[in-house]
Nucleic acid binder design. Sequence first.
DNA 1: GCTTGACTTCGAGTGCGCTCGAAGCGCCAG
DNA 2: CTGGCGCTTCGAGCGCACTCGAAGTCAAGC
Lengths: 131, 131
Amino acid sequence: MTVIAPPQGLTIAEASERTGLTTHTLRYYERDGLMLRSVGRTSSGHRVYTERDLTWVRMLTRLRATGMPIREVKAYAALCRSGDGNETERLALLQNHRARVLSQLAEVTEHLGAIDNKIGIYQSALERADA
Amino acid sequence: MTVIAPPQGLTIAEASERTGLTTHTLRYYERDGLMLRSVGRTSSGHRVYTERDLTWVRMLTRLRATGMPIREVKAYAALCRSGDGNETERLALLQNHRARVLSQLAEVTEHLGAIDNKIGIYQSALERADA
DNA sequence: GCTTGACTTCGAGTGCGCTCGAAGCGCCAG
DNA sequence: CTGGCGCTTCGAGCGCACTCGAAGTCAAGC
C-alpha cells in the first residue's frame, strides 16, 4: 500500500509535504531542469529526495516567491551544477535579482500609499455619514 | 493624417502616452468592463478620453500594479458605477486588498533576506579567493 | 478624388506557470 | 493470487493578462 521511504530519503509525497509544493510541481521542476541534479530513484523507479534536494527546493521556492522567472532559476541552477569557478556569475545573477525585487517593493509600496489615501477618503466619508 | 483630438478630450494614442498602457490594453480594459463607464466617441466612432477617464485608469493601474486580479478590479468598478450607497463594500474591498498586499510584501521581504544571506556567502567566498 | 495612416471591431494567439488525466507498473494486505 | 494504492511517464489543458493581426472606415493632405 504505502510506499516505504528508503533509508536516508523521502518519497515525493513526503517531499511535497515538507516543501508545500504539489507532487505535480516537484516533478515539473525536475523535468524542466530547475533541480540541481535529477533526484535519485529506487530500484522500482520511485523518486528519493535527500535533505540536499529539499534545501535546494527551498532556495528555489524563495527565488520563485520573489518573482524570479523559471528560466532564470534554470540559469542559476545550471551555474551551480557546472561546479566551481563561476561564483562571480552566480553572485551577479542574484544581485541583479535583488535589485529588481527592491525596486518592485518600492513601486508596490508607493502604489499602496495611494490606495491607502483612497481608503482614508472612504473612511472619513462614512464617518461623516454616521454623524 | 493625424486624428485631431476633439476639444476637452484625448485620442486613445494620447491616453496611451499619458497612462503608459498600450492602446490595445486600453481597449481591452474597456471591453472587459474595467472602466467606470464606456469611453466617449466622436461622430466617427473614435474614442475620446476625458481627464476623469485618465484618473480612473491611473487608479486601475495602481490596483493592478499591487496585484489585484482583473476580476476584482471589475467588481470594484461595478460598485463605483452603481452609484452612492455601497461605500462600505468598496471600503471593505480595498481594505481586504491592502491586507493581502501587506502580507505579500512581508513574505517577499523575508525571502529576500534569505537571498541576501546567500549573496553574502558568495561575496565572502570571493573575497577569500582574492586574498 | 486618391493616398495615407490612425483609428475601429472581432477573434485568435502568446507566454507563463503550473495542473491534470490517462495508461501502466510494483508492492503489500488479505 | 488478486485488489488497490501510489507511484511512474507523457502530453494535453487551463487561467490569467494581455497582445496581435486582419479587415474595414474615415478625415486630412496633396
